[in-house]
Design a protein around this nucleic acid. Structure first.
Lengths: 116, 116
DNA sequence: CCCCGACATCGATAATTGTCAATACGACGG
DNA sequence: CCGTCGTATTGACAATTATCGATGTCGGGG
């Protein structure tokens, strides 16, 4: 892995995206394109210090512990979450760089055709 | 369908997201979570008037015409693209509301250092 | 030392998806 | 009216994925 470097992508609008860029960002979107994972990220991001214990996360969902663990693994593998073991518990934290890489994608660069 | 109404979602960070919101936005992300579709949207968005003819789109990709047609259908079904037939050709156009719905997701709400 | 609680991994299964070749369909041009 | 071009649909297939039950692993408490 070690791809801590995210595509500092040009926005979706504005200029057309390169194949490489698309292939870099798509996995991030794919990781987020699930209701459970979306809520996981949201829950973690809105927790104290931007991190949350798996034990708390588990209780917030209907799915089994194995399923939640799987989703967290996917988000971690995509580089969206950091993982830290503290004693018996495991804490996941959002990686702002990853989120902002995606945010850049959807930021409108400049009003199209506004230049007269 | 007819869900021209997009979740005017709270950002991912800030407050934790409701199950309903997650289930509303996830399909949008899912539709975008593919390199080909990402490039399609980008290509269309950066075209004249925010729309593009399928005939041009086809030539910009290695995949077969059927595959491109399929991806366009997915994007259209998700509400991300509008479809208009003009004569023999079909034009797809981006739906800014859809994109901005997703953009809202990734917009950071809290300016900075609210509480120290 | 043994058990228990927190989390991850494994194995299995059903569902979804990306892709293509083949075919259908609708609009022109001759 | 027939052939052709642009696009969509169908059918098939391999690959991926979401989910679960069962089991493994690791750390702490008694």
């Amino acid at each position: 892995m070690s791809d801590t470097d995210f595509a500092c992508c040009t926005p979706l609008t504005g200029t057309s995206m390169s194949t490489d860029q698309a292939e870099q960002v798509a996995p991030l979107l794919k990781a987020l394109a699930d209701p459970v994972r979306l809520r996981l990220v949201s829950l973690i991001a809105s927790s104290e210090g931007g991190e949350a214990c798996v034990c708390d996360l588990n209780e917030a969902f209907d799915q089994t512990q194995a399923t939640i663990s799987h989703h967290l693994k996917v988000l971690h593998a995509a580089g969206l979450l950091d993982r830290e073991k503290r004693g018996v518990w495991v804490y996941y934290a959002v990686r702002p760089e990853a989120l902002s890489a995606v945010a850049t994608l959807f930021s409108t660069p400049a009003p199209a055709g506004a230049s007269a």
